[in-house]
Simulated scan of single mutants.
Amino acid sequence: MAYVITNLCKDEKAAICLDVCPVDCIDLTDTQYVINPSLCIDCGACELVCPVEAIFHEEDLPAEHESAILIATNYYGS
């Protein structure tokens, strides 16, 4: 997985990230957007446009948001 969307997106859902993702690897769950870890090409386009700064590179993910990795991997079953 390269990029992760945290629960900071939960109330925003601006969806600008969907427009800039070149591989369409972002989907909406019941509560927030998630990035498919198998499809993400690590381009960073989504992180740059997020209005609430909810997207982090996995290596830079703050400890308090580590559950976002589990949410994405469970959603995509990977």
Results as ranks from 00 to 15, higher is better:
residue 1 M to E: 00
residue 1 M to N: 01
residue 3 Y to L: 14
residue 3 Y to I: 05
residue 3 Y to Q: 07
residue 4 V to H: 04
residue 5 I to A: 09
residue 6 T to Q: 07
residue 6 T to S: 15
residue 8 L to C: 05
residue 9 C to Y: 01
residue 9 C to M: 01
residue 9 C to N: 11
residue 9 C to A: 04
residue 9 C to Q: 03
residue 10 K to H: 06
residue 10 K to E: 14
residue 10 K to D: 07
residue 11 D to P: 00
residue 11 D to L: 07
residue 11 D to A: 12
residue 13 K to R: 12
residue 13 K to W: 00
residue 13 K to L: 15
residue 13 K to E: 04
residue 14 A to D: 09
residue 14 A to Y: 02
residue 16 I to A: 13
residue 16 I to H: 12
residue 20 V to K: 11
residue 21 C to E: 05
residue 22 P to I: 06
residue 22 P to S: 13
residue 22 P to K: 10
residue 23 V to T: 12
residue 23 V to S: 06
residue 24 D to V: 01
residue 24 D to F: 03
residue 24 D to I: 02
residue 25 C to N: 09
residue 27 D to W: 03
residue 27 D to C: 03
residue 27 D to F: 11
residue 27 D to G: 02
residue 28 L to A: 11
residue 28 L to I: 02
residue 29 T to Q: 13
residue 30 D to S: 13
residue 30 D to P: 00
residue 30 D to T: 13
residue 30 D to W: 02
residue 31 T to E: 13
residue 31 T to Y: 06
residue 32 Q to L: 14
residue 33 Y to E: 04
residue 33 Y to R: 10
residue 34 V to P: 00
residue 34 V to S: 04
residue 35 I to H: 03
residue 35 I to F: 03
residue 35 I to S: 08
residue 36 N to G: 10
residue 37 P to E: 09
residue 37 P to I: 13
residue 38 S to C: 08
residue 38 S to Q: 15
residue 38 S to E: 14
residue 39 L to G: 03
residue 40 C to K: 10
residue 40 C to I: 09
residue 40 C to Y: 05
residue 40 C to A: 11
residue 41 I to F: 01
residue 41 I to A: 06
residue 41 I to K: 08
residue 41 I to L: 02
residue 41 I to D: 00
residue 42 D to W: 00
residue 42 D to E: 11
residue 42 D to H: 03
residue 43 C to A: 11
residue 43 C to M: 04
residue 43 C to Q: 05
residue 44 G to C: 03
residue 45 A to M: 08
residue 46 C to H: 04
residue 46 C to R: 06
residue 47 E to R: 14
residue 47 E to C: 05
residue 47 E to T: 08
residue 47 E to A: 15
residue 47 E to I: 14
residue 48 L to E: 14
residue 48 L to S: 14
residue 48 L to N: 13
residue 48 L to Y: 03
residue 50 C to G: 12
residue 50 C to S: 09
residue 51 P to E: 06
residue 51 P to L: 11
residue 52 V to E: 12
residue 53 E to M: 11
residue 53 E to V: 04
residue 53 E to Q: 10
residue 54 A to P: 02
residue 55 I to V: 07
residue 55 I to S: 01
residue 55 I to T: 01
residue 55 I to W: 01
residue 56 F to R: 05
residue 57 H to S: 10
residue 58 E to V: 12
residue 60 D to I: 06
residue 61 L to K: 11
residue 61 L to S: 09
residue 61 L to T: 10
residue 61 L to M: 08
residue 62 P to G: 10
residue 62 P to N: 12
residue 62 P to Q: 10
residue 62 P to T: 09
residue 62 P to I: 10
residue 62 P to W: 07
residue 63 A to M: 05
residue 64 E to S: 09
residue 64 E to M: 12
residue 65 H to S: 03
residue 66 E to T: 07
residue 67 S to I: 02
residue 67 S to D: 10
residue 68 A to N: 01
residue 70 L to K: 14
residue 70 L to S: 15
residue 70 L to A: 15
residue 70 L to D: 14
residue 70 L to M: 10
residue 70 L to Q: 15
residue 71 I to E: 14
residue 72 A to I: 02
residue 73 T to V: 12
residue 73 T to S: 14
residue 74 N to M: 05
residue 74 N to P: 00
residue 75 Y to T: 11
residue 76 Y to F: 15
residue 77 G to K: 15
residue 77 G to Y: 03
residue 77 G to D: 15
residue 78 S to Q: 07
residue 78 S to D: 08
residue 78 S to W: 00
residue 78 S to A: 09
residue 78 S to H: 04
residue 78 S to F: 03
residue 78 S to V: 14
